[in-house]
């Protein structure tokens, strides 16, 4: 997604009030943006706390400020600066974290970001974008840039099946239709399930949705999705994020407040920051039972009468 990010920001760089700050990252990716922005492209160095507060200072004077780093360095190290300096003043600084979830794979847990949007959504007025496909970046940058709220963009890598036609961007998108349970995934993880779901017989195939914008308070469920949940009463949520503070709990609160009953619920989530062994993003997804086989086992279990109550 970094190329698409760079292209989208270069297109936006004609705005004289735009400033981009990076925490010494972007080699072999952001050079065109650096060239386009000139002195408004600032390498703030390996000093993320300062970078975020500087961003707040610039935004306070009317600049449109984008901040870029590897995801955990973007939100975890400077969390107090985001809280106090950006959100307490409702400044529309846009934080871009590359490698969300287990995106940095075998690089290890210091580089993973599996509690990022949960933590950030505890802050006032914060918006989160989790683009699903590379093609989403243009719309995500446009929507985040147009928003008066602070925002965090969790970047990953688009993982659509080969030959897949990526649907036009929308905060909620239905990716497969069927008579099975409802499945909702957050961000790029959704792409890993599409092929397997499409191969299921229609009576078992889920109504599969992907969400890109959080929290639900700012991006309520489409009526069609709410109706499907009400009708099916079987729901599975998959997210590359820890259980606490994740999308799953936010969704269940929303459904409870709307009096939409869910009889069977399963949650696939990032189970640990590190396991006994290190490995790729896909390895870590398997360790967390976020992989496609684990998902299919859940769906199979949903299809039995007593099903998921005992697994």
């Amino acid at each position: 997604m970094r190329k698409q990010l760079c292209d989208a920001l270069v297109a936006r760089a004609t705005k004289s009030e735009m400033v981009f700050l990076t925490g010494d990252l972007g080699f072999m990716a952001l050079e065109p943006l650096q060239e386009t922005l000139g002195q408004r492209f600032i390498n703030a160095g390996v000093a993320e706390q300062n970078m975020v507060s500087v961003a707040a200072g610039l935004a306070r004077q009317g600049f449109e400020v984008w901040v870029y780093s590897i995801a955990p360095f973007c939100y975890a190290r400077p969390f107090e600066q985001i809280r106090n300096d950006i959100t307490f003043h409702n400044l529309p600084v846009k934080l871009i974290g590359n490698g969300g979830g287990y995106g940095y794979g075998v690089m290890g847990p210091t580089h993973h970001a599996i509690e990022d949007y949960g933590v950030l959504l505890t802050l006032p007025d914060m918006s989160v974008f989790v683009p699903v496909f590379d093609e989403d970046m243009e719309a995500v940058i446009a929507r985040a840039g147009a928003s008066s709220r602070p925002a965090y963009i969790r970047m990953g890598r688009g993982e659509p099946p080969n030959g897949y036609t990526v649907p036009a961007y929308a905060p909620w998108r239905q990716l497969t239709c069927g008579s099975g349970p409802v499945v909702i995934a957050v961000g790029p993880l959704a792409g890993t399930y599409i092929d397997a779901f499409e191969q299921l017989p229609v009576e078992y195939r889920p109504n599969f949705w992907v969400v890109t914008e959080l929290p639900i308070e700012q991006n309520p469920l489409p009526t069609e999705l709410a109706n499907q949940i009400e009708k099916s009463s079987s729901l599975c949520v998959a997210e590359e994020h820890v259980r606490h503070g994740g999308f799953g709990s936010d969704l269940l609160l929303y459904l409870a407040e709307k009096n939409i009953a869910v009889r069977r619920f399963r949650h696939l989530y990032a189970r640990a920051h590190h396991f006994e062994r290190y490995g790729s993003q896909n390895f870590l997804r398997r360790q967390s039972a976020l992989d496609v086989d684990s998902m299919l086992a859940i769906l199979k279990n949903f299809s039995t009468p007593e099903g998921s109550q005992h697994d």
């Binding site: 408004r40 961003a55 200072g57 600049f63 300096d85």
Partner: peptide, 25 residues
């Protein structure tokens, strides 16, 4: 008062961002 302060170690960065904004302008 441009910024809520009280947690030490924020103000100089906020001031630097403000000064940079004035230089860019």
């Amino acid at each position: 008062i441009p910024f809520a302060t009280g947690s030490l170690g924020h103000g100089l960065s906020l001031a630097a961002g403000t000064a940079l904004a004035f230089q860019l302008k």
